[in-house]
């Protein structure tokens, strides 16, 4: 990430460096990812285990559907969802750019 894209570069330091909620949303950590989760929607039973275990809250139910999807803006590609999925519906695929 080049310096000009750093959303925190000019963050003002308050007393005690107190930070307002949700400020980390501007930091799109998906750019750190080397592997991305790909879901087999037929195998997904919408149990929500991927959501429960995801450290970045990037696994979410897809609206109007009976399966889950991933917010690739924040998914760091750790692969925990693949490990915990009871139906092996998630595969981690190497990112290609």
């Amino acid at each position: 990430m080049s310096e000009s894209e750093d959303p925190y570069e000019n963050l003002t330091i308050t007393t005690g460096a107190v930070v307002e909620p949700n400020t980390s949303r501007v930091n799109k950590t998906g750019s750190w990812r080397q592997f991305k989760p790909v879901i087999n929607v037929d195998a997904c039973i919408a149990c929500g285990q991927c959501d429960t275990y995801c450290p970045d809250q990037a696994a979410k139910p897809v609206e109007g559907e009976d399966y889950y999807g991933f917010d690739l803006d924040y998914c760091k590609g750790c692969g925990i969802c693949e490990e915990v999925c009871p139906t092996d519906a998630i595969d981690m695929i190497r990112e290609e750019k």
Binding site: D6, Y8, E9, L11, I13, G16, A17, V18, V19, E20, P21, T23
Partner: peptide, 17 residues
């Protein structure tokens, strides 16, 4: 009225804190 206290600071900010 949530806030984060004692959060992480990168080299760009720690000196000022």
């Amino acid at each position: 009225d949530p806030k984060t206290m004692g959060a992480f600071a990168r080299p760009e900010h720690w000196t000022e804190a």
